[in-house]
Design a protein around this nucleic acid. Structure first.
Length: 205
DNA sequence: CTTCAGATGCTCT
DNA sequence: GAGCATCTGAAGA
């Protein structure tokens, strides 16, 4: 069962955030397919989480998708210029999600590089390669993910998650140590800002 | 390697 | 009107 189904997302948000590490994100665009491996996530655990947009079941025009069924994309706009990609988790009515913070390029790196820097991947220096997909706003730009995808079903369509990827065998992706730490950019969240709800691994080289 | 300011506009009160 | 789940380039060490 290579494509992750609804049941994958219909679980505790911390478990989903951890299990997403190393999974493959497949983005289908006109005339091309982009594939990336998930390298960093953050769990936002819903009504009881002061860092979460839906803290206290607060429901607004922006975060409505979080209250819907799991396995859908929640894409929102921050800081006047960046989109952020999340996956809705847990049961319908429990407004939880996982933020995707970093990816490794697997297929289509040129396309991603062109969208971010206007030049092909070969022309990038080491600094730019390292910074291609290592932030929530950056990866959305590289994969052409915008609010147009807010509410999109992740089990079928132009944005899908898989256990494997075309041309990638399990031996190409040895399990890496998954680390955890505090979430980023939530200084307002009082005690919740220290919760170790961020998961990541070091990308070699 | 690190800090730092500025960009920019949607969202909610 | 204030705040924001961020990014960039420039400058310093």
């Amino acid at each position: 069962m290579p494509v992750l189904g609804r049941e994958f997302y219909s679980r505790g948000t911390l478990a989903v955030a951890k299990d997403l590490m190393g999974k493959y994100l497949v983005r289908t665009l006109p005339g091309e397919t982009l594939v990336c491996r998930i390298a960093e996530t953050e769990a936002y655990t819903g009504a009881g989480d002061k860092a979460c947009h839906s803290y206290g079941y607060r429901r607004t025009a922006r975060n409505g998708v979080m209250f819907g069924p799991p396995g859908h994309a929640y894409v929102y706009f921050v800081y006047g210029m960046h989109d952020c990609l999340n996956f809705v988790t847990e049961a319908e009515g429990e407004p939880c999600a996982v933020l995707i913070r970093a990816l490794e390029p697997i297929l289509g790196a040129d396309s991603m590089s062109l969208r971010r820097y206007g030049v092909s991947y070969d022309e990038l220096n080491a600094y730019r390669r390292k910074n291609l997909l290592n932030g929530p706003g950056k990866l959305c730009r590289a994969l052409d993910i915008t609010r147009a995808l807010n509410g999109a079903d992740l089990t079928e369509g132009s944005l899908v998650l898989r256990d494997d990827a075309p041309g990638v065998s399990l031996t190409d992706a040895p399990p890496r140590a998954i680390l955890s730490g505090p979430r980023v950019g939530i200084d307002y969240a009082q005690e919740a800002k220290e919760y170790p709800y961020r998961f990541y691994y070091e990308i070699p080289k």
